[in-house]
C-alpha cells in the first residue's frame, strides 16, 4: 500500500514566527489548471497586518544598521536556500500558475537569479546614487541614500514567485523592512519563500508575509501611520481593490507610493521576466545630505 504522506500546513510569517491568523480563518487554495485542492491557507486579518507592522518597525533599525556587506551576504544566503528547495518551489509554482514543468523550472531559476541580482546591490547603490556635492563654499557636502523605513507591499496576483521576489528584494536590500500581502489565489510559494527567509539569517520581522485578500488588508496598511511607503504592484487583478483609494489613504502620512504599472486608472501586472532597472529599489530610499565647514 502507498504511504500516506504528511501534508503541510501553510501559515503566516510575522516577526520570524509562523502563526495562524489571529482571526482563526483560512481559505481554500486550488491549483490553477486542474482546480484540485491544494491547501487551506491562513486568511490574514487587519490585526495580523498591524502585528506585522509592529514586527517590521521593531526590526527596521537593526536591519538598516547592519553593514551593507552583511545584508548582501544574508540575502545571498536566501538564494542558496531557495536553490536547495528548488523541487518544492517548482511544484508550487506549477500548481499555482498552471505552468508546464519546464516553464516552472525557468520561473524558479529566474526568481533565484533575481534575488542574487538584488542581493549584490546592497553595497553598491549608495555609491551610484550619491556622493560629494561641489558646493560653492568652504564646506564638505555629501549625499547618501537611506532606507525609508517600513514598506507595505501588495505582491503580484499572477506571478506567485518571480513577481514576489521582484517586489520584496529591492525593498529590503537597502535596509527597509516589509509587510507583504501575497497573491490571494496563489499564496503558497510565498509561504515557502518565508521558510527560506527564516532559515537564511534574515532577522525576524524584516520580511513579514500575510496570505489573504488584498481588498481586506490593504486599506489598513495604506492608512497605517507607522508605515512609510507602499508598493501597489499587487493591486493589478486583485478583486475588490481600488488602488486610487489606497493611494488617497496613503496621503494621510505622506507615504511614498509606488503605483501599479499601467496607464490611466488601469493597473496591469508587468512582465516580471524583463530585466529590472533600479526603480523599485530607489522608490523606497531617502536622500540625506550632510554639510560640514572646512577650516584649519
Amino acid at each position: 500500500m502507498a504511504r500516506v504522506d504528511v501534508k503541510k500546513t501553510y501559515k503566516l510569517y510575522i516577526g520570524g514566527k509562523f502563526p495562524r491568523s489571529e482571526s482563526g480563518r483560512s481559505y481554500e487554495v486550488y491549483a490553477a489548471k486542474k482546480g484540485t485542492f491544494l491547501a487551506n491557507a491562513a486568511q490574514g486579518s487587519r490585526k495580523d497586518a498591524r502585528d506585522a507592522v509592529t514586527a517590521a518597525r521593531a526590526a527596521q533599525p537593526g536591519w538598516a544598521s547592519a553593514t551593507a556587506y552583511n545584508r548582501g551576504q544574508v540575502l545571498y544566503r536566501v538564494a542558496e536556500v531557495m536553490e536547495s528547495r528548488r523541487p518544492q518551489l517548482v511544484q508550487e509554482v506549477r500548481d499555482a500558475e498552471g505552468l508546464s514543468p519546464a516553464a516552472a523550472e525557468s520561473v524558479v531559476s529566474q526568481a533565484i537569479d533575481r534575488w542574487v541580482w538584488y542581493a549584490g546591490w546592497s553595497d553598491k547603490y549608495v555609491q551610484i546614487l550619491g556622493g560629494l556635492n561641489p558646493v560653492a563654499g568652504p564646506y564638505f557636502n555629501i549625499s547618501a541614500s537611506e532606507p525609508t523605513g517600513v514598506v507595505a507591499v501588495l505582491a503580484p496576483q499572477e506571478s506567485s514567485l518571480l513577481g514576489l521576489v521582484s517586489v520584496i528584494a529591492p525593498a529590503i536590500v537597502s535596509g527597509n523592512t516589509v509587510v507583504v500581502v501575497t497573491s490571494a489565489d496563489r499564496p503558497l510559494p510565498a509561504i515557502t519563500l518565508s521558510e527560506c527567509l527564516a532559515t537564511s539569517d534574515v532577522p525576524g520581522g524584516v520580511v513579514n508575509i500575510i496570505t489573504g485578500k488584498a481588498a481586506e488588508i490593504a486599506p489598513w496598511l495604506s492608512s497605517h501611520r507607522d508605515v512609510n511607503a507602499i508598493d501597489l504592484a499587487g493591486a493589478a487583478g486583485a478583486e475588490g481593490v481600488d488602488w486610487a483609494k489606497l493611494e488617497e489613504a496613503s496621503a494621510d502620512n505622506l507615504k511614498r507610493v509606488l503605483r501599479p504599472a499601467g496607464t490611466g486608472s488601469d493597473a496591469v501586472e508587468p512582465d516580471w521576466t524583463q530585466t529590472p532597472d533600479l526603480s523599485r529599489l530607489t522608490a523606497f530610499l531617502e536622500t540625506k545630505t550632510v554639510w560640514h565647514p572646512k577650516g584649519r
Binding site: N133, V135, A136, N141, T289
Partner: peptide, 27 residues
C-alpha cells in the same frame, strides 16, 4: 531622520546640494 543635516553650520544652500525631507516633510 532628516533630509539635510548641518553640522557646525546651518541654513546653507547650494544648487549642487539636494534638498528635501523625510516623513511628512514631503518627498
Amino acid at each position: 531622520k532628516a533630509g539635510v543635516v548641518w553640522a557646525n553650520t546651518f541654513n546653507q544652500f547650494d544648487p549642487t546640494s539636494p534638498f528635501g525631507g523625510y516623513k511628512e516633510s514631503g518627498y
